[in-house]
Design a protein around this nucleic acid. Structure first.
Length: 279
DNA sequence: CGGCATCCCTGGGAGC
DNA sequence: TGCTCCCAGGGATGCC
């Protein structure tokens, strides 16, 4: 489900739900998602408050007042919902933060993590451990940050013999791109998903880098892409699904040349492309 | 190291 | 309505 724009949408929605509140209660529904949850997670969160929210790739990073970090990853099917009243927890609501206001006039907020497939995960660790964190270290630069450029793209793709589509999914090279935006970015750059990653240079690298940035930015503005599971934390769908050019549109006309959109499977995952526009 | 298949898990939709 | 099969926004792991 959630790629960089969806995770960014989640992060933005969490800010007002966390601000001016402390954890009155943390509910842990099961001891494992993809991996075992941190020991004593609920106890370690109770009474704490969040000082800052960040995002790295597809991870939400929630800084606590005791210099620990709560990390959330939503996997394929994870979503966050924020409620103003105590919610009825369903079968796949695995984790909830009850955030009590520090000032009486504000409502309590209830932040619920739902994840049917349980490919998501949660971690809690000291901020000082961040640089050597197993999941975070080794991640490529943020595509919307200063370190990302056509030159960087060129450098990390150089020498790679696999298809560029697969390289875009590799979080070690660039953070945050998933199956939807890999197809979309390649479409806007006019590059075939089959092209060998190592042959992306010069103008192609320029176009691809620019397409990655613009498609991610546009998706964030639209509140992300809602397919099945993903909704914004307030329950709104993300409207970017209506603006996808090729992803999920097999057989439908290419928005540029009307040629039917094709699919292929690469490393077990579907790619969508226009055979005329993407050379 | 790079590339690829396999596996983790549940549910929704298509097709019969 | 019900069954089966296939597919799904991710990524770790293990094999070549």
């Amino acid at each position: 489900m959630p790629e960089l724009p969806e995770v960014e949408t989640v992060k933005l929605a969490l800010v007002p739900a966390l601000q001016g509140r402390m954890v009155r209660h943390a509910h842990v529904g099961r001891k494992d998602l993809r991996w075992p949850l941190p020991e004593n997670l609920a106890e370690r969160l109770t009474g704490r408050y969040f000082t800052q929210l960040g995002r790295r790739g597809k991870y939400v990073l929630m800084m606590l007042d005791n210099a620990e970090v709560l990390l959330l990853h939503l996997g394929m099917s994870g979503s966050i919902r924020i409620h103003q009243t105590p919610p009825q927890l369903g079968k796949h609501d695995h984790f909830m933060l009850e955030m009590a206001p520090l000032h009486d006039q504000e409502p309590t907020s209830y932040i619920v993590l739902n994840d049917p497939r349980r490919f998501g995960w949660i971690d809690l660790f000291a901020e000082s451990e961040m640089p050597n964190h197993k999941l975070l270290s080794g991640m490529g630069p943020e595509p919307l940050g200063n370190e990302f450029s056509a030159a960087h793209l060129r450098a990390v793709l150089r020498g790679r013999t696999g298809p560029v589509k697969n390289a875009l999914l590799n979080q070690q090279l660039i953070a945050g791109i998933g199956n939807i935006y890999a197809s979309e970015a390649l479409f806007y750059a006019g590059i075939s998903p089959r092209r060998k990653a190592g042959t992306i240079a010069g103008r192609r690298a320029q176009r691809l880098a620019a397409s990655i940035v613009s498609v991610l930015r546009a998706a964030i503005e639209a509140g992300g892409t809602s397919l099945r599971d993903h909704v914004q934390p307030g329950g709104e769908i993300g409207y970017f699904v209506q603006r996808l050019a090729v992803y999920g549109r097999a057989g439908q006309p290419c928005p540029v040349c009307a040629e039917p959109v094709k699919t292929l499977v690469q490393s077990g995952r579907s790619s969508f492309y226009c055979s005329r526009c993407q050379g």
